[in-house]
Simulated assay, not measured.
Amino acid sequence: MAVLQMVLLLCAGSSLAEDIFPPTVNIIAELEKLKNMDERIQKLEETLAKVLSENEALKTTVQDSQNKLESFQKENGAKKVAFSAGLLESGTGHTGPINTPKILVYKKVFSNIGGAYDANTGVFTAPVKGVYYFRFYGHSHGGTTMAVSLLKNGETQCSAFAWKPTSNGNASNGVVLTLETGDQISTRLWANTWVYDDPESYTSFGGFLIFPL
C-alpha cells in the first residue's frame, strides 16, 4: 500500500511539473544557471565594494596631496621675505628734533616681498621663525646730532650715531637676528636728535629673511 502511494505521488509531481514547465525545460539546468548568476552578482557586488573602497582611499590620498601642496606653497611663500624703504615718500626735510624718542615711519617703499613691513607704522613683523638681516642708514646736516636705534620688540639691538657734524653726517648699522613668528622690528629716533631725507633716500631701512628655522 505504501509503495502504491509513493508511485501515485511521483506521478502527480511529474504531472504538475509538466503543467508548470514546458517539456523541453531542464529544471536542474535552470537551477544551475540561477546559481551561477547569483554567484556572478555576488562577485560583482564584491568588486563594486572594492572599487568604492579604493576610490575613497584615492580621494583621501588626493586630499592629503593637496593639503601638502598648499602647506608647501604657504611655507615657500613665507620664505620669501624682504623689504626696503626710504624715510620720506616725497619732498625734502628733517624729522626731529623733539624731546621724546620717535619711531621712524619709512613711507617710500622700494620693495616689500611677503608684506611683512607696514608703511603706516614703520614696523616689520616676522611672518616666520628664522634668521633675519636688518640694516638702516641715517643722514643729518651740520649742527645737530643724529642718533637712531634698531629695536626688537621695543628693545634696542644696535644704533647709528653722528655727533653734531660740521657739515653732513652719515651713519649706519646692521645686525643679524633670530626672530620668532610675530616679533617686531622698528627703528627709533633718539630724543633731541634729527634725521634728514630727500628724494635720494639718504635715510632708509631694510631687511630680509636669510633662512627659516
Rank of each mutant, 00 (worst) to 15 (best):
A2C: 00
M6N: 13
L8A: 12
L10D: 12
C11P: 01
G13C: 11
S15N: 03
D19F: 06
F21E: 00
T24Q: 14
V25E: 15
E30F: 12
E30A: 11
L34M: 08
K35R: 15
N36M: 09
E39S: 15
E39Y: 15
R40I: 12
I41D: 06
K43T: 05
K43D: 12
K50G: 11
L52E: 15
S53P: 04
E54R: 01
N55C: 07
A57Y: 02
L58F: 11
T60G: 00
T60V: 03
V62S: 05
S65Y: 09
L69E: 09
E70F: 15
S71M: 05
Q73N: 11
K74T: 13
E75Y: 10
A78C: 01
K79W: 06
K80S: 09
V81Q: 12
E89C: 00
G91T: 01
H94A: 09
H94M: 11
T95R: 07
G96I: 05
G96P: 09
N99R: 09
T100R: 07
K102L: 15
Y106I: 00
A119S: 14
P127I: 05
K129N: 11
F136L: 00
H141W: 06
G143Q: 02
T144E: 11
V148S: 01
L150K: 06
L150E: 06
T156M: 07
T156S: 12
S159V: 04
K164I: 07
T166L: 03
G169L: 06
N170C: 01
S172Y: 08
G174D: 14
G174W: 13
T178A: 07
L179G: 15
L179C: 05
T181G: 13
G182M: 13
D183F: 03
D183E: 09
T193A: 05
W194V: 00
V195F: 04
Y196A: 01
D198P: 01
S204Q: 06
F205K: 02
F208A: 05
F211L: 10
